[in-house]
Amino acid sequence: MTNSPGFDASRMLSFDLETTSKFPAEARIVTSALVRIDGREVNAVEHLADPGVEIPEEASRIHGITTDKARAEGRPHDEVLADTVTAIRQAWEDGLTLIVFNASYDLSVLRKLTGDFTVTGPVFDPFVVDKIKDRYRKGRRTLTDMSQHYNIKLENAHEATSDALAAARIAWKQVKMWPELAEMGHGELMEMQAVGYYERQEDFRRYLAGQGKDTSDVNTAWPMQS
């Protein structure tokens, strides 16, 4: 990926998954939302998948999709996966930036499910940018909490399209607050996020280790690039 002109908040594809598990290595897609913003044109598509496995009650309580609903109304899982990856790759080919809140999760899920998904275009992660640019702010940084902080309306938390729209709006607000983000080339922007994510995760790993807790699940890589 070249160090091409920076993030254009008028041209983005905001992406969100709801899944069967909080662990990327075992998660399968339940819903996939893709909100394409290109100037004044906004096109939102949400795919419901039959994940092919039972959806745990814990996951259903979060996103509201039960196993019965997914089986009755969802499309085959691999079709939804393929359509999702195709849309992301097309957006990159068209020069759009991919917006993903907590990209290390969603993109890891795609990598695990496809076996070969790599990041070949720019990614903007509002969660990581927030932790870098407002490092010492206290409080939680869930999408709900950050929507409140940035004065963004989150219509229905954990409904994939609503989450994707909220992430796009937060990204837009962040660029207005820190205009230097828009001036960074794509390579520079990606490096900033990757380094910042690594540093924050290392801080978290050391904290857990100091508490005598398991650190094996702490991921320090953000995100996967070809």
Rank of each mutant, 00 (worst) to 15 (best):
R206K: 14
H186N: 12
P56D: 10
Y197A: 01
G187A: 11
N3P: 00
V129P: 00
M177T: 08
W222M: 13
G115L: 06
K176D: 13
T118H: 09
Q90V: 09
S226I: 11
Y105R: 00
A27P: 05
G115R: 06
M184S: 00
M192H: 12
D145V: 03
A33V: 04
T144M: 14
H149C: 10
A194E: 12
R36I: 00
T118A: 13
A49P: 00
T144N: 11
V128C: 04
H63I: 15
N151D: 14
E159R: 15
R71M: 12
S147P: 01
D163S: 13
Q201H: 07
P51Q: 01
D125G: 00
E93G: 14
W222F: 15
P24H: 05
W178L: 01
R135F: 12
T84N: 13
L110N: 05
S60A: 15
W172V: 08
D145S: 13
W92G: 12
L34I: 07
E79F: 06
T66K: 15
E155A: 13
G196V: 12
G52W: 02
E183L: 09
W222A: 08
K133Q: 14
E54A: 10
A168E: 07
E159W: 10
I99Y: 06
T86Y: 10
K138P: 00
F15R: 08
L189P: 01
V218E: 01
A157H: 15
R75V: 03
K213C: 02
S21R: 06
E183D: 07
S162D: 12
K131L: 15
Y136P: 02
G121L: 09
T142G: 15
E58M: 14
V42E: 15
L13C: 07
E188K: 10
L189D: 02
A171V: 05
E183F: 03
I132W: 08
Y197D: 00
T114M: 09
E155N: 04
F204W: 11
G121Y: 08
V128I: 05
Y150W: 15
T2Q: 14
F23D: 12
K112H: 14
P122T: 11
S32T: 04
E191G: 01
V175E: 12
Q201V: 02
E183M: 04
G6I: 02
L17K: 10
K153Q: 09
F204A: 13
E46L: 06
A168V: 02
S10L: 09
F15D: 05
V128P: 02
R28Y: 01
Y197S: 00
R169N: 12
L98G: 09
P56C: 13
A182V: 00
L110T: 05
I62M: 13
P126F: 01
T20Q: 13
D217I: 02
N151C: 11
R141S: 05
L17T: 08
A221I: 06
H47T: 04
P76G: 03
Y198S: 11
M192D: 11
R61E: 15
K153H: 08
R141V: 01
R137I: 10
L143A: 06
M192R: 15
V218S: 03
I29F: 08
N102P: 00
